[in-house]
């Protein structure tokens, strides 16, 4: 099977699971709203009847932070704690739902009810969590070896505050080119668990590496292609969100709708990677 066909089939599988994607979106939205809405109320209370909000129309003016006084510190503390909590909860939730997605994509063509999706998610959660933690360790070590050590050496040699230099760009490129390998192994391992029902994580990782070895170029090329498109999409999303400054009520609502559509797109692309890997190892 060609890379293109794998990606195409993966996209079709991801698109057919739109209900599951929407379900995940709503769950994550509720989670971030639970943190975000109290922060908004806090912000409104701080601004009160002031017109100073005009200064925030073109980005947050840090100079205003001092004028808020102590409440700003409280806001930042609440935002930091909320972000950490939501981030941690989100990690578990996404790991949880990955179990359902892989189950869905490792099945023969066909749908998966939400109840079955949740059941599969629950069933795969523990081994998926172990794989996620293991892969975090592996990619962390990989990053340290490929980028960290050369960076430290470069800093020691050049006396600079940050690792810079043309040679280091080669290491960055090397790091980026290596990442699809780890992602594929992680995905193929999870697919193996979802397909076999086994809970043995190390065996799953072995299966992942084997799959990689058996169809290296297809596997690697598929994940690399998805990763490049994903990265471009993420950068575009951040650029849009960073630069958009809607200042009227309707525009703000449309901005909200647009940001959520973009996040749904992002979820779709994640599902696309899962489905494409499942296609590749079929």
């Amino acid at each position: 099977m060609s890379i293109f066909k794998t990606l195409k089939n993966g996209a079709a599988a991801a698109a057919s699971s739109y209900k599951l994607i929407l379900f995940v979106w709503i769950t994550i939205l509720v989670l971030v709203m639970a943190v975000g809405f109290p922060l908004r109320s806090f912000l409104n209370a701080m601004f009160g009847n002031s017109l100073v909000v005009e200064r925030l129309n073109n980005g947050f003016d840090i100079g205003l932070a001092g004028d808020f006084g102590k409440p700003f510190g409280a806001l930042m503390a609440a935002a930091s704690a909320g972000t950490l909590l939501a981030g941690t909860a989100g990690f578990f939730i996404m790991t949880f739902f990955a179990g359902g997605f892989f189950r869905r994509y490792s099945l023969a063509w066909g749908g998966l009810k939400v109840s079955d999706f949740l059941r599969a998610s629950a069933g795969n959660f523990i081994p998926f969590l172990k794989i996620a933690l293991l892969m975090m360790l592996i990619t962390g070590a990989y990053t340290f070896i490929i980028v960290g050590i050369p960076g430290i050496v470069a800093m020691m040699v050049s006396g600079s505050q940050l690792p810079t230099g043309k040679v280091l760009y080669l290491f960055y490129v090397l790091w980026a080119l290596g990442m699809p390998v780890w992602l594929f192994v992680a995905d193929a391992s999870r697919r193996w668990i979802a397909a076999t029902g086994s809970r043995k994580v190390l065996r799953a990782l072995g299966a992942g590496f084997r799959a990689m070895k058996e169809r290296f170029w297809l596997s690697y090329g598929t994940v690399l292609a998805v990763l490049v498109i994903n990265t471009a999409a993420v950068l575009a999303i951040f650029w849009f969100a960073g630069n958009a400054t809607p200042d009227r009520s309707l525009a703000v609502f449309l901005f909200f709708a647009a940001t959520q559509l973009l996040f749904i797109l992002r979820l779709f692309m994640k599902a696309w990677r899962y489905a494409s890997v499942c296609e590749a190892v079929k």
Partner: peptide
């Protein structure tokens, strides 16, 4: 007499998207 809350809403929207993106990026 007519305080605008659109700025806080806009900031909330950006914050929520940022959170969502972080969650999606830092999970496998």
């Amino acid at each position: 007499l007519d305080p605008a809350h659109t700025v806080a809403r806009r900031m909330l929207n950006k914050y929520m998207l940022l959170m969502q993106m972080i969650i999606s990026i830092f999970t496998l």
